[in-house]
Structure formats: C-alpha cells, structure tokens
Design a protein around this nucleic acid. Structure first.
Lengths: 339, 339
DNA sequence: TCGTATCGTTGAAACGATTCATGAACGATG
DNA sequence: CATCGTTCATGAATCGTTTCAACGATACGA
C-alpha cells in the first residue's frame, strides 16, 4: 500500500538519494533524471512521509498555539494572523484550546513537546510559568501571547491591558458614570487582573466614583448573562450605572440579560463597555463600545518572534517583548445620556 | 540535547525494549524495573519522539479537519465537538481553514496526507470530490461534514439544508412576507445551493410570493453588509420585505447595513432570518431568527464515523450517512408586523 | 598526458521508538 | 530430578526519509 522513496527509486532506476535530491534540490539533478523521477512519483502516487522527514530533521515544521478559548473570536483572529505568518515559511499552526483549564493546557504542551514542534505560542492560564520555562529550557522556543513574562526571560507579544482597562473606565467616568461594576474573572487570568488594575487606576483619579467587582467563573457569554441577571434583579437604586466587562463575550451576555424583559436599558440606565472589539460587537443589540486590540497582528508578530528565536538556535537569543497599545472604540452602548 | 530511549535504557541499566514496554505495557514489566525506568525518565527529562512513533506505527494519532471558515462560530463549534470525541480516544484534531479557497483546501489535504493522519473530516468547497476520493482510495478514511457525497461512496454527517431553507422561507411567508430576497453565495458551495433550493421550494407553494437572489462572493459579515447596503439604497418600493441570509454572518452584516442611518427597520420594513443560530445571533441589534443546526454534535458524530471506518481498516466499510434535521428559531427579526 | 575541477549519482548510515522471536531464570508438578 | 510453564528481559530488525562521503565520468588547462 505505502509507496516509499525506495519504490520510486526502483521505478525510475535511480538511487534513493537521487529521489530525495529531486524532492529537495531539483537543481542539483540532471533535468532528464528529474523528469524520470517525477514521472515515477506521479505514476506510483508517491506521497512523502512526514513522520520520517521529521524524525530525520529532528523537529517538525509546525508551531503549537495554545489559546484560552477557541470560541472567542479574538483568539481565532490571533490564530489567523499566526497562520498567515507561518504559511509564509511553509509552516503550519497546530491549534490547541485550553478552555481556561490547567490540565488541558498541560496536556497540549506535552503533546506539542512530543511532536517536537518548532516552537510554542501560548496564552498561559495562571501565573505559574514553570512548565513553560521547562519547555524552553529543553530547547523549544516559546513566545507568550497576550501576556508578558514575569521575569522577562521569555519573548512576548502583548497589549497593555492595564492601559486598556484604564481607557475603558476613564471613558465611563468622563461620560458621567459614577457607580461602575467590573464584570470578569477569574482574576488568576492575567488579562483579567490587568484590566481590573487599569480600572482601579482610573477610578483612583476620581474620588466620587465607586468600583464594584463582580467575579465570574470564566469569560463566556453564559457567565456574562448570569452576571447581568444578578444586576438586573437588584432594586434599581442598588444597580451600577455602568458595567465594564473583561471581554466582549461577557459584555454580550450582560447585554442579553439586560435586554430580556426590557427592564434595564443600555445605555440609558446602565452604560456598557467590553474588551477586544470582536466583529460581533458592532452588531450587538446595542452596538457595543469596546477596547480594540490588533488580534491578527499579535498572532503574526508572535510567529515572527518565534522564528527569530528558533533561528538563533543554540546561541541564546535575548527575549524580545512587543507591546501594542489598545484603543478605545465608542459606540452606542456608552453614548447615551449620563444621568 | 535530545534524550532517547537508548539513554533512558542505559541510565536504568535495562534494554531499550524494556523502556518501550514500560511506556506502553507497564503491566508486562516487573514493578521494580518499572520504577527504575520511570525514575530514569524523570531524571533525564525524557520526552517521547512522536515522529519516531508515527513512523513505526504507519499513521498518526491526529485527525485532520478542513473547514470553510474558522471565523464562523458554527465551524468552531463543529471543531469543538470533534475535539471532544477525539480526546476520548487520545487523539488530536488538526484544524485547517480553507477560507473558501480551493488552493488552500488542496494544500491542507496534501499536508494531512503527508502527515499520514488517521483520517480527514472535510467540508469540501465545490462539487469536485475527486481529490477527496483519491485520498480515500489511497487509504485515508474520509468523512464529509455538513455535506453529503454525490455518489454515496463517502460517509457523511450533515444537516438537511434543503429542509432548512424551506423552513426559513416558509416561516417568512407564513408571517405575511411576499417579496423575499435570498442573500448568499457563491452557489458553488453546496450548503448555499441547498438552502436556496429549499427557499425555492417554499416559494413554489405560494404563487403570490417572489424570490430574488442576491449573490455574494462569500459568506462573511462584510459581504452581508455590502448586500444590505445595496438593498438599502434602492427606492423603498423596490425593496424586498424579507431577507433570508445563507448564514448568520451574512445576516449580521445585512442587519448592520439596515441599521446604519436607521433607514430600514427590522422587522417592520424588512424581516430578516439567518442560518446556523450562532451564539451571537441572539445578541444581535435585533435578535436574529435563524435555523439551528447541532454544530458540536455534527463534529462529534463525524469523528465517530471516522473512527469506525478506520477500524474497519482494509475490509471496505460501507459508507454511513447521518443526517440531522434543522430547527427554526424565531426571534424578533421576523416577529414584527407584516405589512 | 597528467592533474584537477565540476557535475551527477550512489549507497550506507543515521534519526528514535516499537516489535517480536529468543532465551534466561525460577517455581511448581509429577 | 527432570520437565513444563510462566514471567521478564533482550537486542536486532524495522519504519521512510535525508545526508554525506565517495566515486565515476567528463571537460579543461597546463
């Protein structure tokens, strides 16, 4: 069944080495030999065995990418950007989905290491970088995505989430909001913690503003809806007058809850701002204000750093850190009249 | 740098065969030998080389999945379902994104074949099944996703798109709409063609209803917005009174266009229904009516069929086809008063 | 005519895990 | 005590590709 170089070599009456040369350095082989070998390949339906190539080469031509949530369009955009850059080098992205779950994250890292991937891009869950560090020590280049490394020993591509959180809340304050709720969690996720820190910083500048934190178990539409319902069920006087959600999925959930029964109007009763500026944000019931991040560019740049690091092979490559700046996008959900 | 079984064997003073047995059949090895080998593995930081395993095994433990568009939440749901089933068997999903582009589709199929994947799940682009057929003939199990095979020679998991299209348009007709526009394309994509066929069927039953087709170059939010703008710019009398979009992404785009400038009200002026019932549909400016498909279940089932087919190895496995039924979900976008 | 480049080609030696026929060691049984 | 089973461990062979030292052939300049 399986056709190997050996078969091709026999069919074209050349040696296996020549077949390999035709495949990899056709210019080093006489033209008519090339033709003969190609004909044999075509006739036998030969397909290279990648496992054997990899075994010989020592590492694969894939890059592992571990994201927190594939359903979040932000991450699929990152993945697309990464894929674009990888494709330029004839490489592939292996997409792993940790689903905000440490075990899954670990099992993807193990898998990628067994696969001897060219490198790993990861948006890690907690603050424990030890597994990632070990991976790197063993020789797999690693680039952190949407996150900077604690001890600056790893390359990273990120967006300044503290600034982003600050932008969001400052905007709410400037448009007259005074009782702000932060919806998001768990705070063990660095992005969440940073955005909250930014929110706190913005609030610190405005003495009459209070910030309340509603922690969610994760960052999904469902969790947002639960949080929104909790707010909706309070007596109106106890409700915040603005909500800053840690990402757009949460914000969409909050919005759904507010809209149900029509009891809470956005932005009239409560203003709402999200984070990531996913495509759907603009198409929401009430078009959603958000903090925009250059998702595809993050992925693209991350692969770029990874390739550099991999090229610098043994010679220790100094970790590079790229930080993009977030951008405020104002839409109807925060545009209404402040009371 | 690279630690191999040989090194582990030396460190534990056993043979390589024993190390392999510890890894794969620990029960066949004496307990204290197991302990000694595990200690050596741990100390040396040994990580199995998957390429070598695969080479020996002949095929990999991954399943390739080629989808039309990763940004479409419908497909990421399918991927999640597939991943779940694959994980149950300790296997992995390799996600490829054809982006509705034949070249990319082909290059992913080639890649997967070189990787000797366990099988391929694909939502193929055009009607040309030849490449897929060839792949299968060469021994890679294939299951079509969201699509049935022309000549019934391939297994498939799909949803009856004709029925879905019919459901959508019938609903529009029943709520009093008479001039219906179908927005979608290209019609070379089977799903689009079928949904349109269903729409035609529903219209055929109602003599006073007209169906207009606005073909789009692909199925994205952007294309939907363009189509929506085209409709919006017509004199009101020439506009349809309902739009059936071939998927929710398009529908969201149409909705955005209608909402801009506030010139077209949904559903008062024009009713709107989409397809797929993605999570965001419920959170749209006007909550979107849609046709629901069991996305995760499709992926799950597809892997299931694939594994069955792979298990039946050489003995030709009769292709199985699973067809799910779509379901109408009515929300505000079609609930308004018919004129 | 002899050296020496250049060009094409060869074939064996890796890469690292798994398999399997073989055999050693030890008990139990008659 | 011989025989038979059972349990463990061994190590060479294998998977398919790539690499590389070596070699024959041809051409060119000295």
């Amino acid at each position: 069944m399986a056709v190997s170089v050996r078969d091709v070599a026999a069919a074209a009456s050349v040696s296996v080495g020549t077949v390999s040369n035709v495949l990899n350095r056709p210019d080093k082989v006489a033209p008519d030999t090339v033709a003969r070998v190609l004909a044999a390949i075509d006739e036998l339906g030969f397909v290279r065995n990648d496992a054997a190539r990899q075994l010989r080469a020592g590492r694969s031509r894939s890059i592992g990418l571990v994201v927190l949530d594939v359903r979040n369009p932000f991450f699929t955009e990152v993945a697309r950007g990464a894929e674009d850059r990888a494709a330029e080098e004839g490489m592939t992205i292996l997409l792993g989905n940790s689903d905000e779950n440490t075990d899954r994250e670990r099992s993807y890292l193990d898998l990628f290491e067994e696969q001897r991937v060219h490198g790993v891009l990861i948006s890690p869950l907690g603050d424990d970088e030890s597994r990632v560090q070990r991976l790197r020590r063993r020789g797999t280049p690693v680039v952190l995505v949407d996150r900077v490394s604690e001890d600056r020993s790893l390359s990273s591509v990120s967006v300044d989430d503290v600034v982003g959180g600050e932008l969001a809340v400052r905007h709410l304050v400037e448009t007259g909001r005074r009782r702000i709720a932060f919806v998001g969690g768990p705070t063990t996720i660095r992005q969440v913690a940073d955005r909250l820190a930014g929110a706190r910083r913005a609030v610190a500048d405005a003495p009459d503003v209070v910030l309340e934190v509603l922690e969610t178990p994760s960052l999904t539409v469902l969790d947002g809806r639960a949080a929104g319902e909790a707010i909706r069920e309070r007596p109106p006087a106890d409700r915040p007058d603005a909500v800053f959600a840690a990402n757009d999925l949460l914000a969409m959930g909050v919005l759904q809850a507010f809209n149900m029964l029509g009891s809470v109007r956005v932005p009239d009763d409560i203003a709402l701002i999200g984070y990531d500026d996913i495509d759907f944000a603009a198409a929401a019931v009430v078009p959603l204000s958000s903090i925009r991040q250059p998702a595809a560019l993050i992925g693209y740049t991350a692969v770029d750093l990874l390739l550099k690091e991999a090229a610098a092979s043994d010679g220790e490559h100094a970790p590079e850190r790229v930080v993009f700046q977030p951008e405020l996008v104002v839409r109807d959900s925060t545009r209404g009249p402040a009371r």
